[in-house]
Amino acid sequence: MIVRIMEEGQFDLSEADLDLLNSFDSTLERAIETGHEDEFRAALHDLLARVRHDGKPLPLDALQPSEVILPPSDASMEEVRAMLGDEGLIPDTPDIADRT
């Protein structure tokens, strides 16, 4: 699964990482719903840090389609709210292209 962090790059993560990322995504959504800026900042930081930690960075010149696009670390709560879909930032089952 290819995840893009805007203004940063793409990371290749296994499908097994999806459940963990969704738990971070849920925490971020709750922080946005309650409007708590400190919780939002921490949740966004934690989500992006997990992607960076678990993902394998792709070369900057790689042109892979991204199944998930995440906001940059300095995004505002309103910017992230505008990016949320019905399933948050990370869908439960992203359309993963066959990369065989």
Rank of each mutant, 00 (worst) to 15 (best):
M1Q: 04
I2F: 00
I2H: 00
I2V: 07
I2R: 00
V3A: 00
R4Y: 03
R4L: 06
I5D: 01
I5M: 04
M6I: 10
M6F: 11
E7A: 07
G9I: 02
G9K: 05
Q10I: 00
F11D: 00
D12A: 11
D12S: 11
S14D: 15
S14G: 11
E15R: 15
A16P: 01
D17M: 08
D17F: 03
L18H: 06
L18I: 13
L18M: 13
D19M: 12
D19T: 15
D19G: 11
N22A: 05
N22V: 08
S23G: 07
S23C: 10
D25Q: 08
D25H: 08
T27A: 09
T27C: 06
L28F: 03
L28W: 02
L28E: 01
I32F: 10
I32K: 04
E33H: 14
E33Q: 15
E33L: 15
G35T: 07
G35I: 03
G35M: 07
H36G: 06
E37K: 01
E37Q: 06
D38L: 11
E39P: 02
E39S: 09
E39F: 05
F40N: 02
F40W: 05
R41V: 02
R41C: 02
R41D: 05
A42C: 06
A43H: 00
A43E: 02
A43L: 01
L44I: 05
L44V: 03
D46K: 05
L47N: 00
L47W: 01
L48G: 00
L48V: 03
L48E: 00
A49D: 14
A49Q: 15
R50P: 00
R50D: 01
R50N: 05
R50V: 03
V51H: 00
R52A: 02
H53C: 09
D54Y: 06
D54S: 09
G55N: 07
G55Y: 03
G55Q: 03
K56D: 10
K56P: 03
K56G: 05
K56F: 09
P57K: 06
P57M: 08
P59C: 09
P59F: 11
P59T: 12
L60H: 15
L60F: 13
A62P: 07
L63I: 15
L63S: 14
L63G: 12
S66V: 14
S66E: 15
E67L: 07
E67F: 09
V68R: 00
P71I: 09
P71V: 10
P72A: 15
S73R: 13
D74A: 10
D74M: 08
A75T: 04
S76M: 10
S76T: 15
M77V: 11
M77C: 09
M77H: 04
M77F: 07
E78I: 10
E78R: 12
E78W: 10
V80Q: 04
R81E: 12
A82M: 09
A82P: 06
A82T: 13
M83Q: 12
L84D: 10
G85W: 10
G85I: 11
D86W: 13
D86L: 14
E87M: 06
E87Q: 10
G88C: 03
G88I: 05
G88N: 03
L89V: 04
L89F: 03
L89W: 02
I90C: 04
I90R: 02
I90F: 05
D92F: 15
D92M: 12
D92H: 13
P94F: 12
P94K: 09
D95R: 14
D98Q: 14
D98M: 13
R99A: 14
T100S: 14
